[in-house]
Protein backbone atom coordinates (compact mmCIF):
# COMPACT_ATOMS: atom_id res chain seq x y z
CA UNK A 1 0.00 0.00 0.00
CA UNK A 2 2.80 2.37 0.95
CA UNK A 3 4.49 1.91 -2.42
CA UNK A 4 1.27 2.84 -4.27
CA UNK A 5 0.86 5.92 -2.09
CA UNK A 6 4.40 6.97 -2.89
CA UNK A 7 3.92 6.31 -6.62
CA UNK A 8 0.70 8.34 -6.55
CA UNK A 9 2.52 11.16 -4.79
CA UNK A 10 5.20 11.27 -7.50
CA UNK A 11 2.57 11.01 -10.22
CA UNK A 12 0.76 14.01 -8.76
CA UNK A 13 4.02 15.91 -8.50
CA UNK A 14 4.78 15.09 -12.12
CA UNK A 15 1.31 16.23 -13.17
CA UNK A 16 1.66 19.50 -11.30
CA UNK A 17 5.08 20.19 -12.81
CA UNK A 18 3.80 19.51 -16.34
CA UNK A 19 0.74 21.71 -15.69
CA UNK A 20 2.79 24.63 -14.38
CA UNK A 21 5.37 24.22 -17.17
CA UNK A 22 2.69 24.23 -19.87
CA UNK A 23 0.86 27.14 -18.26
CA UNK A 24 4.10 29.12 -18.13
CA UNK A 25 4.87 28.38 -21.79
CA UNK A 26 1.33 29.39 -22.77
CA UNK A 27 1.51 32.61 -20.76
CA UNK A 28 4.90 33.60 -22.18
CA UNK A 29 3.66 32.74 -25.68
CA UNK A 30 0.53 34.90 -25.33
CA UNK A 31 2.58 37.74 -23.87
CA UNK A 32 5.11 37.93 -26.69
CA UNK A 33 3.08 36.63 -29.62
CA UNK A 34 -0.31 38.20 -28.89
CA UNK A 35 -0.05 41.01 -26.36
CA UNK A 36 3.19 42.58 -27.59
CA UNK A 37 2.17 42.98 -31.29
CA UNK A 38 -1.35 44.05 -30.27
CA UNK A 39 0.12 46.62 -27.93
CA UNK A 40 2.43 47.92 -30.64
CA UNK A 41 -0.50 48.30 -33.08
CA UNK A 42 -2.61 49.93 -30.38
CA UNK A 43 0.07 52.50 -29.63
CA UNK A 44 0.73 53.11 -33.31
CA UNK A 45 -2.83 53.49 -34.63
CA UNK A 46 -5.20 54.39 -31.82
CA UNK A 47 -5.47 56.40 -28.65
CA UNK A 48 -4.70 53.96 -25.86
CA UNK A 49 -6.62 54.30 -22.58
CA UNK A 50 -3.35 54.28 -20.63
CA UNK A 51 -2.05 57.80 -21.28
CA UNK A 52 1.64 58.10 -20.55
CA UNK A 53 2.48 61.50 -21.97
CA UNK A 54 2.59 64.77 -20.08
CA UNK A 55 1.05 67.85 -21.62
CA UNK A 56 2.62 70.96 -20.07
CA UNK A 57 0.37 73.23 -22.16
CA UNK A 58 -2.89 71.62 -21.02
CA UNK A 59 -4.91 73.49 -18.37
CA UNK A 60 -6.29 70.33 -16.85
CA UNK A 61 -5.91 66.57 -16.96
CA UNK A 62 -9.39 65.90 -15.60
CA UNK A 63 -11.66 63.51 -17.52
CA UNK A 64 -15.40 63.97 -17.45
CA UNK A 65 -17.14 61.26 -15.43
CA UNK A 66 -20.14 59.42 -16.78
CA UNK A 67 -22.95 58.52 -14.38
CA UNK A 68 -23.60 54.81 -14.00
CA UNK A 69 -26.84 53.48 -15.49
CA UNK A 70 -29.69 52.52 -13.16
CA UNK A 71 -29.03 48.79 -13.39
CA UNK A 72 -25.23 49.13 -13.29
CA UNK A 73 -24.96 47.38 -9.94
CA UNK A 74 -26.29 44.11 -11.33
CA UNK A 75 -23.15 43.39 -13.34
CA UNK A 76 -19.45 43.06 -12.44
CA UNK A 77 -18.55 45.34 -15.40
Amino acid sequence: MTIFKRLFHYWKLFGKTVFHGLALILLVFTFYMVLTPLGWLRRKFSKAPVQLNLDPEAKSYFLTSHPESNDSMTTPY
Partner: peptide, 26 residues
Protein backbone atom coordinates in the same frame (compact mmCIF):
# COMPACT_ATOMS: atom_id res chain seq x y z
CA UNK B 1 -15.42 46.79 -7.02
CA UNK B 2 -16.06 45.91 -10.67
CA UNK B 3 -13.59 43.09 -11.30
CA UNK B 4 -14.04 42.94 -15.10
CA UNK B 5 -13.09 46.60 -15.43
CA UNK B 6 -10.08 46.16 -13.16
CA UNK B 7 -8.99 43.23 -15.34
CA UNK B 8 -9.46 45.39 -18.44
CA UNK B 9 -7.18 48.00 -16.85
CA UNK B 10 -4.54 45.34 -16.17
CA UNK B 11 -4.64 44.17 -19.79
CA UNK B 12 -4.52 47.72 -21.12
CA UNK B 13 -1.51 48.42 -18.91
CA UNK B 14 0.28 45.43 -20.45
CA UNK B 15 -0.70 46.55 -23.95
CA UNK B 16 0.77 49.96 -23.17
CA UNK B 17 4.10 48.60 -21.97
CA UNK B 18 4.72 45.22 -23.69
CA UNK B 19 7.29 43.75 -24.36
CA UNK B 20 8.21 45.11 -20.93
CA UNK B 21 6.37 43.69 -17.94
CA UNK B 22 6.55 39.91 -18.42
CA UNK B 23 7.32 39.33 -14.72
CA UNK B 24 4.27 41.33 -13.58
CA UNK B 25 2.12 39.59 -16.21
CA UNK B 26 3.17 36.15 -14.96
Amino acid sequence: DKPFITFERLLESHLATAPKGLQLYL
